[in-house]
Design a protein around this nucleic acid. Structure first.
Lengths: 140, 140
DNA sequence: CTGGATGCAAACTCTTTGCACGGAG
DNA sequence: CTCCGTGCAAAGAGTTTGCATCCAG
């Protein structure tokens, strides 16, 4: 469900109000491949003529996250990024110089590792967080 | 080099001053398996009778990190954790309920995945960050 | 109308910086 | 005696909360 119209339709059907901010925010997320910060979302909305207070930004993001349409991504730089939750779990390669982000799918992800770790540690593994950092083609 | 005495010896040899804070901080790190936050380090030092201002905490951590003895660990909760840099790269399994942390080594880590990603994306991969989250034996 | 959505200001948490004082070598 | 190390206060950045107002349905 990477389509703004579909997401908005589901939200509307579930009784959520269709506000300017909500519509524009979903459109921005749907049009953005890379994870963005709350403030970047605000800038993107402003560019579309929708000026939004930062409080509202965080609240709208929390709302969309609560509905399961948006998920948190953490690059370890103390700023939380968000992106549309994809059906297929994927990871990110981040350029440490220009911050460009590319999505990658792992052939078999970490399922086998997770199983091994679960056995070894007696943990039930719920999820993992994996990001790669390096230099993109134009930065090296 | 997981031994406080060795680390302190190297620091001393390189001309760094041996202060109460420095000695105690290295000892705390050496005695702690799990990554700790700056404030947790402060609490641990206080327990040893060494009261340290938070500014000094951050500066001492930055100092040790700069010397290569400590590295940043990020669990994605907007708090930076630190641990002694181990010779062998390892990952963490974090209990989402009680915050217990267990170290794990991956059999072959992610070398093959990194190679595949480098080819696919034209990035030069420098490092990755990988943490597992789940429930520990006593919490499930 | 009514409750969810929004804005503004202020609070909060973690972290960093400026400046003056203190202590290790 | 010299600098590195330290403390205190204040500033920053990102995020959250309280409260009054606004607007979609």
């Amino acid at each position: 469900m990477k389509n703004a119209k579909d997401i908005l339709a589901v939200l509307k059907a579930s009784g959520s109000k269709m506000t300017r901010v909500r519509i524009a925010a979903v459109e921005v997320f749907a049009g953005n491949a890379a994870p963005i910060t709350a403030l970047q979302l605000g800038a993107a909305l402003a560019r579309r003529g929708v000026d939004v207070n930062k409080t509202t930004l965080y609240r709208e993001i929390a709302f969309l996250a609560g509905k399961g349409f948006v998920e948190e991504i953490d690059f370890g730089d103390r700023v939380t990024r968000y992106e549309l939750k994809d059906a297929g779990h994927h990871h990110h390669v981040v350029c440490v110089r220009c911050d460009r982000v590319v999505d990658v799918d792992l052939d078999r992800d970490l399922d086998s590792q997770e199983k091994a770790i679960a056995q070894k540690t007696k943990f039930t593994i719920l999820r993992h967080s994996l990001e790669f950092f390096g230099l993109c083609a134009s930065c090296k």
